[in-house]
Design a protein around this nucleic acid. Structure first.
Lengths: 232, 232
DNA sequence: CTTACAGTGTGGTTAGACCACAGTGGTAGG
DNA sequence: CCTACCACTGTGGTCTAACCACACTGTAAG
């Protein structure tokens, strides 16, 4: 077994045993190295991996943002991983879109009326009305979809949904260039968002799921991603 | 931007541009360091991250298994990430099981009759008949479920399903200790497997999906993971 | 022709040094 | 007394240079 894996095991055990909790701080790299009798390099490699997994965040200096602290951001981490695999052509964009439809439809159908995330989603829609800028619109759109997914109350589905979105974020941005009329498209997307949210709030899960599926597929279809789409 | 991120960007660009393909070899660590004008340490941190993502595999020595080669194993990588997050108590096991049911049901419903993966699944069932050993049985069971998921033809769903399974593999192993009668349980699981496969081969997707959902939920319920189950 | 072995290039690991950064606390100047 | 400055301390970030184990390759000895 390689040295940095030993460090990983040790840290994972600390987490499992509850000796290290969310928001907690890892010992300094030098301290860990001495404690485990390994070099600081090996400790750093382990920390790097955990950072890539969204399990910790490393900060220099001193004070509240300093040191290596335990966080919980599986979404961005999974997103980076998927993005890389898309780059290797092993994961077709079409499969990602299809999976997104699957997860988001399920989440829309299961969304709990009254969930705080739904209020956030509504607020985001208001902001989108005043955002003609494409970048801003897409950023808010992403947050809207994540909020919707969170309303279903399954953290794993939320994380995966966010990661799928993140994996093809750049890709989606480029696709807007294919659109003939951005204003018309964004108006339509806005209307669809409101319809989806209304269906969810009316506790009509089936309708909400159908609307979400059509919403996502419609965008990629208009932008030129068919079911046989090639990567990039 | 940190140095190792620069290296990551460079490698990702090589992948995106097609200069580096699946099965391809990265330049040696020393060569990359010189080419990018960074230290070998930073190159190694980048490689570690890619390795954790299942994008590359590093091997010592020389010859076929040596060097750092591009692979595509998102499943195990995502699984490790999820497992760590389960350790932080941020991802409840119940959510993982629920997501597994969602993905596998979908895959069972979409499985293409005649897919090679179905033949493999059938062969695995034969092997399971001769495997009274719990460990062997569970390993084959995992492969059976993955094969079933692959028959739907969506690489992202396959990878995620495999990762979910992997994330709670140890957990599932411990759960078998809760079972009153392993032989009875395994006989039932075997029968359910055959029923699922039969439904898929009969192109009865709806029935296959229902059977899969009941199969997975049944196991965890019998082993003591309720919908409100706590992690570990 | 076979065998043994030095050579070469790979990743794996280590030690030690220096840097930038951000709080902390003492101190000199107002 | 108060304020502004600045050295101090501990954090992660980076780099260099060396050595190791490994696995193949080519060559030389038998």
């Amino acid at each position: 077994m390689r040295t940095h894996e030993l460090v990983l095991q040790w840290i994972e055990k600390q987490l499992s045993d509850g000796d290290l909790a969310l928001g907690g701080r890892l010992p300094g790299e030098r301290a860990m190295a001495e404690q485990l009798q390994v070099s600081r390099t090996s400790v750093r490699e382990a920390v790097r991996i955990l950072e890539a997994m969204g399990v910790v965040r490393a900060g220099v200096g001193s004070g509240k943002d300093a040191g290596t602290v335990v966080i919980a951001e599986p979404g961005s981490a999974l997103g980076s991983t998927l993005r890389l695999h898309v780059a290797t052509r092993h994961l077709p964009v079409a499969d990602i879109v299809e999976t997104r439809v699957l997860l988001e439809s399920w989440a829309a159908a299961r969304a709990k009326v009254g969930a705080p995330a739904l209020d956030e989603a509504a607020a985001l829609l208001e902001q989108m009305d005043d955002s003609p800028d494409i970048e801003t619109f897409l950023a808010l759109d992403a947050r809207f979809h994540v909020a919707l997914a969170q309303a279903a109350g399954n953290t794993v589905v939320s994380a995966m949904m966010a990661s799928l979105r993140g994996a093809i974020e750049n890709y989606a941005g480029k696709l807007t260039g294919n659109l003939p009329d951005w204003k018309a498209t964004s108006d339509r997307l806005r209307a669809e968002h409101r319809a989806i949210l209304a269906a969810v709030n009316a506790d009509d899960g089936g309708r909400a799921a159908d609307l979400v599926a059509a919403h996502i597929q419609g965008f990629y279809k208009e932008a030129g991603v068919g079911s046989q789409a090639s990567g990039r």
